[in-house]
Design a protein around this nucleic acid. Structure first.
Lengths: 347, 347
DNA sequence: CTGAAAGCGCTTACAG
DNA sequence: CTGAAAGCGCTTACAG
């Protein structure tokens, strides 16, 4: 009582359990039990305490509770490029799922800088997150990450595999996506199908090529070296390489493109040769960027569904929190075929 | 010493100041002083403590420090639509500026739902943020916000003014942006300039119209009611209303469009009438969405620079933290003219 | 320059 | 069913 009277004088600090206890004429322990909805408290007592909580506009101090309980209600989310709509959607999905489970999101954006990433992680670690979802910056050094993250924190890595780490990992199923796109073209009646664009030394390109080859082989179709064309994964470079598709004798009637940017570039390249994409030639993309639906013709593509991936990442991490640390788990997310007008039957 | 020995046995908890103190043979107070880089500590002692910190891989527990010091190193950032690249960039700017000042960002995304916004804010408030940057959901109720935020928390509202609140506010300078766009067209030699698109009952449209009228009047040019054309702020509706521009006798040679979507729609509408935008007719946009630079012709527009706005929001809030609470401050951010090919001199 | 003690706002056995 | 006491990991006067 004495202390409460004193603090009532300055009247500036937010009320604490002590203030509520004094106001309701009970002990702090009882207030705490009411806050945590314990069934031990008598209904009358509970009602009195709750009235006092409302009267004083009490706000729970979760940091203090977490300190005492040695728990944490925060999850760190570190994103390589928040200005990329794909990752922004991913972040929104993570935040949504975490919020529903009562966690708060500690955000960090690294802008693809490994140095900034180290600084951001070091800062977030001081806030005792219960776990971390990391979409790593390019050229991240797993050893440095290990040094700043320690060995106890539950971590889920998204999108980019780090060499030699043993963290859980969630990535897009590149192979299945490309397989679906290829199967779709085959179903439409195409037989001579190229795989167009991307750098063959990138892992995502290799995986997508593998999916393409799988679908071709499933259908008993052969592939040809001249149908495997490399370009930078950009619109411009893709447009420039268009002629390579039509150099051989076995000209393809369709192409599975490495991604949407490549597909849009190929559309430009086709138009420059007097061919109309989506009529004279069928093509698919990968990613479903916003422009894919707006292109002429609208682009059939593989949707990565970043928001759903974000929710999935949050769920995988929370599962890990509830378990003993086992073997690292690799999860691949299902891609989804988005059929639009760019994939007609062969002319 | 006894306690440390005990906790050394289970060997699972992260080391605390007590562990470091025991290891270095000093008191916890001394460790704390070293951590806070106090000059009071003897260099030899400091070195011993620092060696011990490194050896035990000590991680500072900022939550505990904040509790004791009654401070907070977190800023809540609540965004109405993180999947909109404009707000994602804004969030990235906020996080960047906060990170540089040693704050961590508590993220919440409301998806334009006032109910979700209340829930998100209530949850974030329990984490004792030092302040809040709020980009409000549509149809937010200021009274409800006040109820959940209390009266002490420093708040900066971004983008959407809330009626009757007294929080600091940062918004785009709609009037100056439209004024710059209009002045640019005048400078290019246009005299008959329309204001095209938007709903005249929205505050942003009114402000942009005011800027347009200001520039016209500054140049001694008159405006006409038939040059003020309303459309929904969408591409489709904008395209559909194109004929309204050319009904009168005084046909405009240029238009200041409400935003980029409207400008892109008008381009379509002009093309449908056999006019070539950027040659037969000049037009400007507003927002600088990614497609503006990719349009044919590339669109002259007003760039809102969301990332810079995010940094600015963070700085304004941190200023407010350092001051006595004064009158609410209204800040308008400078828009920037992005000159591209859509604004040639009159034909 | 260093240490013993109190306390931030909460929770949790442990008595009663 | 309720209260007194200890303690989460820090920091801060206050002695020495």
């Amino acid at each position: 009582m004495k202390k409460t009277a004193a603090s009532a004088k300055n009247e500036r600090h937010a009320p604490t359990v002590s203030d509520i206890a004094a106001g309701a004429g009970v002990s702090r322990a009882t207030v705490s039990l009411v806050l945590r909805e314990s069934p031990l408290v008598h209904p009358n007592t509970r009602a009195r305490v709750q009235a006092e909580l409302a009267k004083q506009r009490y706000v729970y101090n979760r940091a203090a509770a977490n300190l005492r309980r040695r728990t944490s209600s925060a999850i760190a989310l570190v994103i390589n490029d928040l200005s990329n709509p794909f990752f922004a959607e991913f972040a929104a999905g993570v935040d949504e799922a975490l919020g529903h489970k009562g966690y708060v999101t500690l955000l960090g954006n690294t802008g693809e800088s490994p140095e900034r990433q180290q600084a951001v992680l070091a800062s977030l670690m001081e806030h005792t997150p219960a776990g971390l979802i990391l979409s790593p910056a390019e050229h991240s050094d797993p050893a440095q990450l290990r040094a700043v993250l320690g060995t106890h924190l539950p971590v889920l890595v998204f999108n980019r595999k780090l060499e030699g780490d043993d963290w859980d990992f969630l990535a897009l199923d590149n192979a299945r996506g490309a397989e679906m796109a290829t199967a779709h073209l085959i179903e439409r009646g195409h037989r001579r199908i190229a795989f167009y664009g991307g750098h063959a030394d990138s892992s995502s390109c290799r995986q997508r090529r593998a999916g393409y080859e799988q679908a071709m082989s499933n259908a008993g179709l052969r592939t040809r070296a001249e149908w495997m064309i490399e370009t930078a994964p950009s619109r411009i470079d893709s447009a420039a390489h268009t002629p390579a598709l039509f150099k051989g004798r076995q000209r393809p009637t369709a192409a599975v493109c490495y991604n949407d940017a490549v597909a849009l570039g190929l559309m430009l390249g086709l138009a420059a040769r007097g061919m109309q994409p989506g009529r004279d030639f069928a093509l698919t993309g990968f990613d479903d960027i916003p422009e894919a639906a707006l292109a002429t013709p609208p682009l059939t593509t593989i949707a990565a569904q970043p928001r759903a991936r974000g929710r999935q990442a949050a769920e995988l991490l929370l599962e890990q929190l509830g378990e003993q640390r086992g073997k690292p788990r690799q999860t691949t997310a299902p891609a989804q075929l988005q059929v639009r007008d760019s994939t007609p039957p062969p002319a």
